[in-house]
Amino acid sequence: MSSSCDPQYAPVGDVSAALMVIDSRLKSIYDSSAQADPEQQQLTDQLIASLGPTGAQDLIDGACTLVYIFMKWLRMAHEDHGKDVIEYVVPSLVAAMRQMPKSIHPEAIPTMAGLVVAAGTGLSPNLWRQQYGDWTKDEMNPLEATALLLAEHINRITDDQDFATRLVSEALSSADEV
């Protein structure tokens, strides 16, 4: 039986732009010798400001698609080792978010955890979230942080700082070939 949150019904959004934002954040985290690159931040801010309402929704949908892709990969990796992805990913994700009170209001953490659980069980995160109304401004940073933390988690377990970005880039390339 098909669910109304089945990924086949979900908009993909602008995955490339969402990946660019996440990749930029990852690079700034990994380059400990560099301070926050103001030029890179300005470019990211300009991109987001130039989107308009439709582009902003596409970026949100793209971020949700990243969450889905990352959780699908994590689910397969955990299942290969006889482990439950929800049990191993969600608690550390929630703990990391709780340590980011300036960026993530505590009220947003349950929503982001639910988003990750939805993706981890094979549901579309954006369709799951849509059941509860429109996205709020206070959920934008937490959504970005969720995708970022999942990407960083993947990079850490693969011991490859570019693995998550490459994973999505290769998926986009193979989708373009179809």
Rank of each mutant, 00 (worst) to 15 (best):
S3A: 06
C5G: 01
P7N: 12
Q8C: 10
Q8L: 08
Q8F: 12
P11H: 02
V12Y: 09
V12N: 11
G13C: 14
D14Y: 04
A18S: 07
L19D: 05
L19I: 06
M20Y: 15
V21W: 08
S24L: 05
L26F: 12
K27P: 02
K27M: 12
K27R: 13
I29Q: 12
D31Y: 10
A36Q: 11
A36R: 08
A36L: 06
D37G: 07
P38C: 04
E39N: 07
Q40W: 10
Q41I: 14
T44C: 06
T44V: 14
D45V: 11
L51A: 06
G52Y: 01
G52V: 00
A56I: 01
L59E: 00
I60G: 07
D61Q: 09
G62D: 03
G62R: 06
C64I: 01
T65W: 10
T65Q: 07
L66N: 03
L66K: 03
V67H: 01
F70A: 02
F70E: 04
M71Y: 13
L74P: 01
R75M: 06
M76D: 09
H78Q: 12
E79C: 02
H81T: 01
K83F: 15
K83N: 10
I86M: 15
E87F: 11
Y88W: 02
V89R: 00
V90E: 09
S92D: 04
S92H: 03
A95S: 02
A96Y: 05
M97Y: 09
M97Q: 13
R98D: 12
M100R: 13
P101I: 07
P101T: 05
P101M: 11
K102S: 14
K102N: 14
K102F: 04
I104H: 05
H105L: 10
E107Q: 12
E107T: 08
P110F: 05
P110K: 02
T111W: 01
A113G: 12
G114Y: 12
L115R: 15
V116G: 08
V117G: 00
V117P: 00
A118I: 03
A118E: 11
A118L: 11
A119G: 14
G120T: 14
G120I: 07
G120V: 12
T121F: 07
T121M: 13
T121L: 04
G122A: 14
G122M: 13
P125G: 14
N126P: 11
W128D: 02
R129D: 04
R129F: 15
R129S: 07
Q131A: 09
Y132W: 08
W135C: 04
T136G: 04
K137T: 08
D138L: 10
D138V: 06
E139C: 04
N141F: 14
P142Q: 08
L143R: 11
A145M: 14
A147G: 06
A147C: 05
L148S: 13
L150P: 01
A151V: 12
H153V: 00
H153Q: 03
N155W: 06
N155F: 05
R156P: 00
I157G: 06
T158I: 09
T158H: 08
D159P: 09
D159R: 11
D160S: 15
D160L: 11
D162F: 15
T165P: 00
L167M: 13
V168T: 09
V168F: 00
E170H: 06
A171S: 05
A171V: 01
A171D: 01
L172T: 03
S173K: 11
A175Q: 15
A175N: 08
E177Y: 06
